[in-house]
Structures are given as structure tokens and as C-alpha cells.
Measured scan of single mutants.
Amino acid sequence: MIINNLKLIREKKKISQSELAALLEVSRQTINGIEKNKYNASLQLALKIAYYLNTPLEDIFQWQ
């Protein structure tokens, strides 16, 4: 199981879903879906999320 901390980290950094989506060149709905565990981010997208949030990938998506 993967624990998804994207919403928590994004909100801590005061970045909206729309802002993050624009940086990543995806839709806001994609970010929303990832945060609600409706969609799994591809490895490429997960790495981009970590880069733009300046946060280690394993802090955003944790295996349990």
C-alpha cells in the first residue's frame, strides 16, 4: 500500500492544485485524482512532483 502525502505537503508549501498542475503541465483534475488516490502517478510525474515541491519522493509517496 502507498501512503500519499501530496496534499499535506502541497498545502504546507502554500501551493494550490492549479499552480502545481500548471508547473507539471497536467490538469488540476489530475492532481486532485492523485491526492484522492483515484489515480496513480506515473514514475515520471511522481519525480516531477518531488522536484517542483523540493521534497524527496519517498516523503510524498511512502510504501507501507
Rank of each mutant, 00 (worst) to 15 (best):
M1H: 10
M1T: 11
M1N: 08
M1F: 12
I2N: 07
I2H: 07
I2W: 13
I2L: 11
I3V: 14
I3H: 09
I3Q: 11
N4I: 08
N4C: 08
N4A: 03
N4M: 06
N5P: 01
N5H: 08
N5R: 08
N5D: 04
N5S: 04
L6F: 01
L6G: 03
L6I: 06
L6K: 00
L6H: 00
L6P: 02
L6C: 07
L6M: 10
K7A: 12
K7W: 05
K7F: 06
K7Q: 13
L8M: 12
L8K: 15
L8E: 15
L8I: 15
I9T: 04
I9P: 01
R10H: 03
R10N: 01
R10L: 07
E11I: 11
E11M: 10
E11A: 08
E11S: 07
E11N: 09
K12T: 11
K12N: 11
K12F: 09
K12P: 00
K13V: 08
K13A: 12
K13E: 06
K14P: 02
I15G: 02
I15W: 05
S16W: 06
S16L: 05
S16M: 06
S16C: 08
Q17I: 13
Q17S: 06
Q17N: 01
Q17A: 06
Q17M: 07
Q17Y: 04
Q17G: 04
S18G: 12
S18I: 11
S18E: 14
S18K: 13
E19L: 05
E19C: 09
E19P: 02
E19M: 09
E19H: 12
E19V: 08
E19D: 11
L20P: 00
L20R: 00
L20Q: 03
L20C: 05
A21C: 05
A21Q: 00
A21G: 06
A21M: 03
A21Y: 04
A21W: 04
A22S: 11
L23H: 13
L23T: 08
L23N: 08
L23A: 15
L24K: 00
L24W: 02
L24M: 07
E25A: 12
E25S: 14
E25R: 14
V26Q: 01
V26R: 01
V26I: 10
V26F: 01
S27L: 02
S27I: 02
S27Q: 05
S27G: 06
S27V: 02
S27A: 04
R28E: 15
Q29L: 09
Q29H: 14
T30Q: 09
T30S: 05
T30R: 09
T30P: 01
I31K: 02
I31T: 01
N32P: 01
N32W: 09
N32T: 09
N32I: 15
N32C: 10
G33L: 15
G33Y: 11
G33A: 15
G33W: 10
I34S: 01
I34W: 04
I34Y: 02
I34F: 02
I34T: 03
E35H: 04
E35V: 02
K36T: 15
K36R: 13
N37Q: 08
N37G: 15
N37H: 10
N37V: 02
K38F: 10
K38I: 11
K38R: 13
K38N: 09
K38M: 12
K38Y: 12
Y39P: 02
Y39T: 11
Y39M: 14
N40Y: 11
N40L: 11
N40I: 14
A41R: 01
A41M: 14
A41S: 06
S42C: 06
S42A: 04
S42V: 04
S42D: 10
L43N: 07
L43Q: 09
Q44F: 09
Q44K: 13
Q44H: 13
Q44C: 14
Q44P: 13
L45T: 05
L45F: 09
A46M: 14
A46S: 08
L47Q: 14
L47C: 15
L47S: 10
L47G: 07
L47R: 13
K48I: 03
K48T: 04
K48D: 06
K48Y: 03
K48L: 07
K48S: 07
K48E: 05
K48V: 03
I49G: 00
I49M: 06
I49K: 00
I49L: 07
A50C: 08
Y51S: 09
Y51M: 10
Y51K: 10
Y51P: 00
Y51R: 09
Y51V: 08
Y51W: 10
Y52H: 13
Y52R: 05
Y52A: 14
Y52C: 13
Y52N: 05
L53I: 05
L53V: 03
L53Q: 02
N54D: 15
N54Q: 14
N54H: 10
N54E: 15
N54A: 11
T55V: 10
T55N: 03
T55M: 06
T55A: 07
T55S: 09
P56S: 07
P56D: 08
P56W: 06
P56I: 04
P56T: 05
L57M: 11
L57Y: 06
E58C: 13
E58Y: 13
E58N: 12
E58I: 08
E58G: 12
I60H: 01
I60S: 01
I60V: 07
F61A: 01
F61S: 01
F61Q: 01
Q62K: 10
Q62E: 09
Q62S: 10
Q62D: 06
W63H: 06
W63I: 07
W63R: 06
W63Q: 06
W63M: 07
Q64L: 05
Q64A: 14
Q64S: 14
